[in-house]
Design a binder for these strands. Structure first.
Lengths: 107, 107
DNA sequence: GCAGCAGTTCGATAAACGTCGTACAATTAA
DNA sequence: TTAATTGTACGACGTTTATCGAACTGCTGC
């Protein structure tokens, strides 16, 4: 069965903000942004269990933040950057910039 | 007793995003942005009970999104726009613009 | 076929959340 | 002083959340 992805015009701001408000999920999104190549779930070094991972990827997908393509036994994840930019201009960039600034360790 | 407000450098991105991810709270923030005059809690037309209101204002305050000043029996609420812009440049604007766009009814 | 790998599904659990009503405190007005 | 106004504190409640482990499905390769 195909995974469900919300249409661009159906993206809800509170839902997206909630999806981005969890540290684990924020990490996923940042990695996807840093390297735009679609990546399997397993390639993210998550410090939670496999089933928790599945949960977080689903929250991101159902919020419309990521897209998941089935490839064999894997799910290739990519950011829905264009859709997000169309619906919420500047939001993703601001969130990513804020997350980067925060983690940019001072010398 | 004075109300507790987090310092600008202590603002956490996930906490702020979570504070903004609730429709009631988003409404509060939008009203504060539309009219930058500090306003009492009661002046927001909220469709929830008084105690729920108190809860939402506290979440916003503890996340560092709003400032509450005591004036008599009232709490004057204002956006911590400068602090937010310093810590998370562009974030608040992007959220507010997205919220505005969403509620801007098409013809 | 069989084993291994990638994720999902299914409870379960503990914590957090949004909501309410009632009671309370503190200020202001009569 | 009494009453009204503004908001808080305190449970209480049902829901959602983040987490886990164990069992499962579906592909890939030997």
């Amino acid at each position: 069965m195909g995974l469900h992805h919300p249409a661009t015009e159906d993206l809800e701001l509170p839902t997206v903000l909630h999806a981005l408000s969890d540290p684990q999920r924020l990490r996923i999104v940042r990695k996807l942004s840093a390297d735009p190549e679609p990546r399997a779930c397993g390639s993210f070094e998550m410090d939670v269990s496999k089933s928790t991972c599945t949960h977080h990827f689903r929250v991101l997908r159902e919020a419309g933040v990521i897209e998941q393509q089935v490839l064999g036994t894997s799910r290739l994840n990519s950011l829905r950057r264009e859709d997000l930019d169309e619906r919420f201009p500047g939001l993703l960039d601001a969130v990513l910039a804020s997350a980067d600034a925060k983690s940019a360790a001072p010398a």
